[in-house]
Amino acid sequence: MNRVRALWERVPAPIIDVVLVAAAAVDVWANLWDDTRLGIALATLGCAALAFRRRFPLGVFLLTLPVALTQPVAVAPLAALFTLAERSRNRPLLAGCVALTAVANSTPWPLAGLTEVGRTMTLITFVYSLATAAAPVLIAQLLQTRRDLARRIVEIEEAREHERALHAQAVLARERAQLAREMHDVVSHQVSLIAVRAGALQVAAKDADAKEAARTIRSLSVTTLDELRTMVTLLRASGGHATELTPQPTLNDLRKLVETSGTHAELKGELPPTVGTPAQRALYRTVQEALTNVRKHAPGATACVELWQDGDGIGVTVTNTPPTRPSLSLPGSQQGLVGLRERAEILHGTLDAGPTAEGGYQVRLRIPLSAD
């Protein structure tokens, strides 16, 4: 049933109109009763009007009534009545149209023959015609109800999907709020202690290198606290209101990043000003992650950050020397380089990382210049 309905819906409307007009004309030709010029003209007008039944259903129905009155036909008036009932929700109007169709079909033509047919036969014909005319109206109303139910089902599914989305957002908001509390109560507190202790060490230390190391630790701790506060603010946002984000880093911030990285690093090279914002952010995050790894895993090493352009590609290479002293065991997620590779793939770029022949480490990112 659904397959037949799908095939029927694929048939173009003009073809259906042509077939219906032809069927009505064949019906008139096979059951021609009034072959006068008037009768033929009314029949032709009623059949041709079926082509416009979708735009003017009531008008076309009225034009087919003379055909039902003058000729013993069924296709033209019933087709027009079906179209009207499929598009109208006015039940009294439809009932009146059914009655008019039954009257037109049961009234003898010419009217002078009413006495010859008799009242009883006319009444029987009227009842039969009434039942015949009611059938397409009931079928059309059934199809109309079916369309309404299908539309209602779609609306219910959309409402349920919207409700599921709202529920998921509520769960996510609770999880984000809980994570924000944990970050605020635990991580921020510990980083604050680090900043305080580093400040005290900077004041009390007499060695210049110790003072510089304490200053770097304090500066990084303060920067980390600012970023944590921003992350806590974002996590506490419910998602339904706009949240003002802090400016994302660009290439202009690289020099400051290198200078405050806590390592002996040098920045070389330049990139054209036409580099897109996503590419600038990827370059910045790559340098940030690489210098963080140098600070954690290669104490005492020197690093070189080189920006370069290679044909239609741009990139950055961060190379560090071997460490000069043993590294401390620090916690890590082991996801830094994985995240950088994913960011590079999104921009259709590549990220290569691995040890160098001299015992150091190198991270190289290349991004197409046209990356958005």
Rank of each mutant, 00 (worst) to 15 (best):
L245Q: 14
N252A: 14
G315L: 00
T286S: 06
Q309N: 06
A282M: 08
A237R: 07
K268R: 15
V316C: 00
T246M: 09
K296S: 07
S238G: 14
R281V: 11
N252I: 06
G199C: 10
A198K: 01
L254K: 02
S192Q: 12
N252R: 11
T260E: 11
A213K: 13
T302P: 05
S192R: 13
D310R: 12
T317L: 04
T243R: 07
K296P: 02
P247V: 07
A279D: 04
N252Y: 09
T243A: 12
R197M: 10
R197I: 05
I217F: 09
C304A: 12
S238F: 04
R218H: 13
R218W: 02
T216F: 05
V258I: 11
L251E: 04
V222G: 04
D226R: 14
H297V: 06
L235P: 05
V318E: 00
G300D: 06
A303V: 07
S261E: 01
A210S: 12
A237S: 15
Q309V: 01
Q309I: 02
L271Y: 01
L228N: 12
L283T: 04
D209V: 15
T302Q: 13
Q280G: 06
G199Y: 01
Q280D: 08
P273E: 07
R295T: 05
G239Y: 03
T286Y: 04
T243G: 01
A198V: 03
S192D: 13
V275H: 00
R295K: 14
E244N: 10
D207T: 07
E270V: 09
Q202N: 12
A198D: 04
T246L: 10
R285D: 09
E212A: 15
T286V: 05
S261D: 03
D226Q: 13
S219V: 11
V287Q: 01
